[in-house]
């Protein structure tokens, strides 16, 4: 990859749109970081998560293109909505796209999948016991 930006403006827009959509349907916060790690990828991803405003409700997707590593980190409360198995499925999807060089497509699809898995349907009449 020659020097320059990782993504074109259109690619960034697509990823940001996927992030916004995932946040809307799940109620969680999503964050995507693409870059090298100063240390091992998992501890570095945890450090990134802790840099965010509300790490407990956040799902962080960390991609190290040079090291070819992907980490999905779910906060303490976010993991109640997004199980490790669901995160693993999304990781598999992203992994497939990344292996073919499609970073943007992998991130968009993966974040969408994470948001869908974390989606919790609203319970109708759950707060209306007098009507039961």
């Amino acid at each position: 990859m020659p020097a320059g930006d990782a993504f074109t403006p259109d690619q960034l827009y697509d990823i940001e749109r996927a992030v916004r959509h995932a946040e809307e349907i799940s109620g969680l916060r999503f964050s995507v970081y693409v870059g090298g790690a100063d240390s091992e990828t998992r501890p570095f991803a945890l450090e990134l998560l802790n840099e965010l405003e509300d790490p407990d409700h956040t799902v962080l997707v960390y991609v190290d293109p040079a090291g070819r590593r992907l980490e999905i980190v779910t906060g303490a409360l976010a993991k109640r909505q997004l199980s490790d198995a669901a995160a693993g499925l999304a990781a598999l999807t992203m992994q497939t796209s990344f292996a073919t060089g499609d970073l943007t497509g992998g991130l968009v699809t993966g974040v969408q999948q994470l948001g869908t898995h974390a989606h919790q349907p609203t319970l109708l009449h759950a707060n209306e016991p007098h009507k039961q």
Binding site: M1, G4, Y33
Partner: peptide, 22 residues
């Protein structure tokens, strides 16, 4: 038109990108 493309196995020179970060 698309610009440089990521190729697995080759080095990565782009600066870090943090979407929806701090």
């Amino acid at each position: 038109a698309k610009g440089p493309r990521y190729r697995p196995g080759l080095s990565w020179w782009a600066p870090p990108v943090w979407i929806n970060g701090p």
